[in-house]
């Protein structure tokens, strides 16, 4: 018998930091989140993938206890956001999709002012700010106004700010959107360190590599519903093939009959064909044998991106 774990003193049933059942969000007549179930466990990094408008941010805002749910059940850190919103928010870190830093204050002042809302003393907030400036590599800019900072620096500051209260659960809504690769890698590194310290992460992202890097478990949302759930590896195994053969044609693409049977499944994109197959090289050889002459071909591993494409019928870039 394994005893139920109670984490951080909260009244957590079955150890889930976030537990949703039939969670729904309605804006007027429009239902943005249509009854989803979630269990986020302590210490894990949990991801949301989904096309624009899938309901990721709406869900995040409900979990961060700023947006009241309109249906279903939700507990966060073992408490109900309806009745214990402030107590829950005291232990959350929130990185919203859109930054809301005070651009006219300095980097350091942003941390000071924000920290105070968590009931922290001035001395504590000052000490914590020094530590977070280091963590976010913003020491050089600490006493500059926020306004002229680069997008990546602002994002790092937002993340630093979200940590001012040593949150137990950190919610990051598209933390790296719009950042250059170097800034993204720096953020990943920081998030990885937080995970090692036992902070539970919930992340939404449009980047499959980010999801694969950071998330132990993820859900794919589409149209307000969860359409798949699992670890990145599980999802690839379940919804994709081991390998994918990409064929590009400069002239007309071959008709359906010509490619029939070459692979388990074929996806026709505007610029190329994707053939889902266990053995890409074998499929390519078979295609050549049938007289197909693609301008170029590529055999690669199945990825989350393929899963996403299959589940939502959309590519990520739009």
């Amino acid at each position: 018998m394994v005893a139920e774990t109670v984490v951080h003193g909260g009244g957590l049933r079955d150890g889930a930091l976030v537990r949703a059942r039939g969670l729904a969000k309605r804006f007027g007549d429009f239902e943005a989140v249509r009854g989803i179930d979630l269990d986020v466990r302590p210490g894990e990094a949990f991801g949301f993938l989904g096309p624009n408008g899938a309901g990721k941010s709406s869900t995040m805002r409900m979990v961060s206890c700023v947006s009241p749910r309109t249906g279903g059940d939700l507990t966060v850190l073992g408490m109900d956001p309806h009745t214990q919103g402030p107590a829950i928010r005291a232990r959350l870190g929130v990185v919203p999709q859109q930054d809301n830093l005070d651009n006219e204050l300095t980097v350091r002042q942003n941390l000071h002012v924000y920290g105070r809302y968590f009931g922290l003393s001035k001395a504590h907030v000052r000490a914590k700010a020094v530590e977070l400036l280091e963590f976010a590599q913003l020491v050089d800019r600490a006493d500059d106004e926020v306004e002229p900072l680069s997008g990546g620096m602002k994002r790092r500051l937002t993340i630093a700010r979200s940590l001012i209260n040593d949150p137990q659960l950190l919610l990051l809504d598209e933390p790296t959107t719009g950042l250059d690769p170097q800034a993204r890698h720096l953020l990943w590194d920081r998030l990885f360190r937080l995970r090692q310290q036992g902070v539970t992460l919930i992340i939404t992202t449009h980047y499959m590599d980010e999801a694969e890097q950071l998330c132990d478990r993820l859900v794919v949302m589409d149209g307000g519903k969860i359409v798949a759930e699992g670890s990145p590896g599980e999802l690839i195994a379940r919804y994709c093939s081991r390998e994918v053969l990409e064929l590009r044609f400069t002239t007309d693409k071959p008709d359906a009959a010509a490619i029939d049977g070459l692979a388990d499944r074929v996806e026709v994109l505007p610029d190329r064909l994707l053939l889902y197959t266990a053995d890409g090289e074998a499929s390519l050889a078979a295609a050549h044998q049938r007289g197909l002459a693609p301008a170029s071909s590529l055999v690669r591993r199945g990825t989350l991106e393929d899963v996403f494409l299959r589940l939502t019928g959309r590519t990520l870039v739009d």
Binding site: A87, F118, G119, H124, A127, E131, F135, L163, D166, L194
Partner: peptide, 11 residues
Amino acid sequence: MSTATKSTAHA
């Protein structure tokens, strides 16, 4: 992240 005083965050 370990050096600073323990958090006392509350509402």
